[in-house]
Every structure is written in C-alpha cells, then in structure tokens.
Computed example of a mutant assay.
Amino acid sequence: MEHTQLRQVTDLADPALDDYLRMTDVRLRSRVEVERGLFMAESYEVISRAIEAGMAPRSFLMNEKWLAKFAPLYEQFPEVPVYFGEESLVAQLTGFNLHRGALASMQRPELPNVEELLRDARTVAVLEDIVDHTNVGAMFRSAAALGVDAVLVTPQCADPLYRRSIRVSMGTVFQVPWTRLDAWPAAGVDLLHEAGFDVLALALTDGAVPLDEVDLGPDRRVAFVLGAEGHGLKPATLGAVDAHVVIPMAGGVDSLNVAAASAVVFWQRRAALAAAAQELRA
C-alpha cells in the first residue's frame, strides 16, 4: 500500500517545515509555539500519550529509519503529512539529532477556565513562576502519580507544553487537567477561596507549620502553592494565602528542590486521604 502522506525532506526552506525550525532556541520556541497554536511531542511514548489524550497532530518529522516503528501512530491520521529524511538533514532543520525517533507537531488545546477546572477538584497545585521546564515537567509527573486533581500555572510560569516539560513529565501533562491564571496572586487566590479552597504556601518563613502537623484530610479542599527556587514565593503571595507550610528537614538541609518538595507535599495529602478512607472502612 502506498503511503501518500509520506513526504521526503529535500528543501529545508519549505514553509511546510516551519514548525520544526530552530528547536533548540528556547526563548523563540516558547513564544512561537504559543503564537502558532502548537506544541511538540517527542518519542513514541509521548506522542502516543498525546494521541490517546485526544491531541490532534499537525505533522510528523522523523529520520527515515524510524518510519516503520512510528507507522502505528501516523497511520491513524492519513491526512496528516509525515516528513522524513536523512539524519544529518533532519538535524540541520531542528538543531539536534532525533535520538528519540520522531517529533510530532500537535495542535495546542484550548485551556479550560479556572472556575471550570476547580469545580470538581479537591487537591490543586499552583506553580508560581516556575521558569525551569524540567521542574515543571517533574511536578506534573508527581501530580499525576499522587492524585492531584488539577494544576494552575501563573502568568510567568514556564509552558507545561514545551518539549522538555512534556518529556520530563512522560506525557502526564496531557493527563492532569491544568490551565493558566490570568492574574496572580490576589485575583488567583480570590478565585481559589471562592471555590472553597484553603490556600497553603510552601515557604521557609517564621511560624510556618510543619507539613506533618497540617490537617490534610478529606474535609478540606486544598491548594498548594509552590514557588521558584532561589527567591521563593512573592511577598504578596505569602500575604494572601491562608497558611505557610514547611517540610521538616534534617541533616542541616534547609529545603528541597521544588520538584522534590512538590512530590512530598502531594504524597502527604494522598496519605491523609487514604488514612481517612481506611478509617471509614474499619
């Protein structure tokens, strides 16, 4: 059977390939991908998870040797072009070698509004100005694994749909409902309060309550606010939330990487909910 969707790459100036230009320029890509309404999925596992989550591919790009492996994915979309070529030519286009086999340019989904996202949620994570894509991806993976219902990202937070974030999250950014806040902190905290959430900031402040002393049981709708490493949460955020929470440390260590801290906090909430459910069954 002839695959009419297969298009060999011969001319790097072809406008049809523009989605894949200058992939290593983080600042440019972060802007262009949002403006053009696309994001990039990389590797068989991530592309398949994106498709399973209902994401629509615009095109695929891969080295010629990977055509057979990725056929089960792209053949689901016979109208979508599949660009392929020699490794050196494809690397010249993207700026790096496709060690993970292929890229897929996907249509960026429309994000839900905050009220819609919070309606049925009980546990929420707020990522305040986390600019490192690796941390964003790791936090989404922890959120998915440990039962967080939704994630809110502030206006200055890195894009969860940037290629590195998606890769580190192992595609869980397609699994956990999320959206971007229009304003933070005041308006965002107000929205959480209106939805019935207690807003807890992870912060090394005087008077912060140790995490293992916080009531995280099922009677509370909880939103955890996590800030960028270094300067931490904004003073305005610390003043707007309901309480400051700290993870108890040992060994002279004052804090964890924000991605690691998020996993600890999400686990503590999950454990509290599980303990309460166990008591009800007893």
Rank of each mutant, 00 (worst) to 15 (best):
T4V: 14
L6T: 07
L6M: 08
L6C: 07
T10I: 07
D11C: 13
D11W: 04
L12R: 12
A13C: 13
P15Y: 13
P15H: 14
L17G: 03
D19L: 14
T24G: 04
D25K: 04
L28F: 08
L28I: 06
S30A: 15
E35R: 15
R36M: 10
S43T: 06
I47R: 00
S48E: 11
R49K: 14
I51N: 02
A56E: 07
L61K: 01
L61D: 02
E64D: 14
W66D: 08
P72T: 11
E75H: 08
Q76V: 04
F77L: 04
V80K: 04
P81K: 12
Y83L: 12
S88E: 12
L93F: 03
G101S: 02
S105L: 09
E110A: 13
P112H: 05
E115V: 08
L118P: 07
A125L: 15
L127N: 07
L127G: 07
T134W: 00
T134Q: 12
G137R: 01
A138P: 04
A138L: 05
M139T: 06
A145I: 01
L146T: 02
V151S: 05
T154R: 06
R163Q: 13
I166D: 02
R167K: 10
S169Q: 06
T172M: 03
R180M: 13
D182I: 09
A183L: 08
A183W: 15
W184Y: 14
P185M: 02
G188A: 11
V189G: 03
G196Y: 01
L200R: 12
L202T: 05
A203T: 05
A208H: 04
A223T: 03
H231K: 09
K234E: 09
T237P: 10
L238F: 13
V241G: 01
V241A: 04
A243K: 11
H244D: 12
V246H: 11
A250P: 05
V253M: 12
L256T: 15
L256N: 13
A261F: 00
A261D: 10
S262T: 13
V264S: 07
F266Q: 05
Q268G: 05
A274Y: 08
